[in-house]
Design a protein around this nucleic acid. Structure first.
Length: 118
DNA sequence: TACTTGACCGTAT
DNA sequence: CATACGGCCAAGT
């Protein structure tokens, strides 16, 4: 019997939960999200899930960037503009399509800076 | 079934 | 700083 729960479905729900847990004004990389979701090495799956996720979920997808702090969308694209706009709206500094390392979650210890003491 | 694609990542040159 | 390469793996053709 099939209850509809496949490894892919499970992974997807974990990724969604992890992204949803990102605090406002804080950013993380696809790899960090994947690792935190218990899926090390599956950054591409994170990207895929975000791309497929319906807007009705209201996910803070704009808080997820590439490991070098750059926005994943090509410069000049609709998504790129949208993401940078949303980040700035939260007080995140975006310069030349990238977020400063100081604002990036790794600067003060991943878990402490990203998900706080609790 | 085989091959290609992609909102990626880390290491090496 | 830019390229190259291997790894990753779901979904599309």
């Amino acid at each position: 019997m099939d209850d509809g729960v496949t490894p892919t479905t499970d992974a997807r729900s974990r990724i969604v939960a992890t992204v949803r847990a990102l605090p406002r004004g804080q950013v993380a990389s696809y790899g960090q999200v994947a690792a935190r979701a218990g899926l090390p090495g599956r950054a591409r799956l994170v990207a895929r899930v975000l791309a497929e996720a319906p807007a009705s979920l209201r996910l803070p997808w704009h808080r997820v960037l590439r490991s070098d702090g750059r926005i994943a969308f090509p410069p000049g694209s609709r998504g790129h503009a949208e993401q940078s706009r949303r980040l700035r709206a939260e007080g995140v500094k975006v310069a030349d399509g990238r977020v400063a390392a100081a604002d990036f979650a790794g600067a003060q210890g991943l878990d402490a800076a990203l998900w706080g003491p609790g």
